[in-house]
Design a protein around this nucleic acid. Sequence first.
DNA 1: AACAATCATCGTAATATTGCGATCAATAAG
DNA 2: CTTATTGATCGCAATATTACGATGATTGTT
Lengths: 118, 118
Amino acid sequence: MGLSKTEAFKASDTRVARYAKALAHPARVAILRLLAGKRSCMCGDIVDELPLAQSTVSQHLKELKAAGLIQGDITGTSVCYCIDPKEWAIAQRTFTGLMESFPGSNPGCCAPMKKVKQ
Amino acid sequence: MGLSKTEAFKASDTRVARYAKALAHPARVAILRLLAGKRSCMCGDIVDELPLAQSTVSQHLKELKAAGLIQGDITGTSVCYCIDPKEWAIAQRTFTGLMESFPGSNPGCCAPMKKVKQ
DNA sequence: AACAATCATCGTAATATTGCGATCAATAAG
DNA sequence: CTTATTGATCGCAATATTACGATGATTGTT
């Protein structure tokens, strides 16, 4: 079906998935790194840095914006995109919250016998 | 086209995207939380906990395994899945590495004038 | 050997994503 | 007013994802 049954899961899991989806493409990660590093970036500069067409980059920016991670302000004919610090902090906590829920080691788990093939 | 031009991006960005993709579905996040919490989990238990068919869960497990985040060991007729501590630590560093690349605030960026519509 | 249980895989359908060119809207420049 | 420039949006094509039922393979049980 292709339709994620998002409603049927816990809100906390859905939130992780939402942020993760925003990071699930190298182009979007690259964009975020550009914005995080330069702390300000014109849309045109981003397009120049990536091996993608302008329309494609615009779409990725749209997704990052939908996820709340970035915001864009119009300055004349160009647009300045930058990271939304508040949302970024939430995303950071969201990821560390998941990652730290694992104690760090798995003592008695999965006695190392035969690995499943798959 | 639908084919991610993965080759054209930096390896570090692709790595983030790979882990993020594994977390980009609530069901997979839920699975990881189950494994992280119980520190050992039979496949059957996971299926019982999720509102998805067995074959669908199996597919999600396959993706998590492909991402390296979990491993599965056969015990008789059932399979014990658990988190791969080593890979999990790498993923953790990968995410925090990205998230911390942002200083935390955006002083002079994007003078708050008109927000872009989109 | 026959049967049940567990889980992977296959086939299929519905939907989402990725990417591009073309076009549109808005502002700036002449 | 006309023309660039910038960036969003539309429409399309190719591919990926999500989900399920059916089927297979493996192991345990009778």
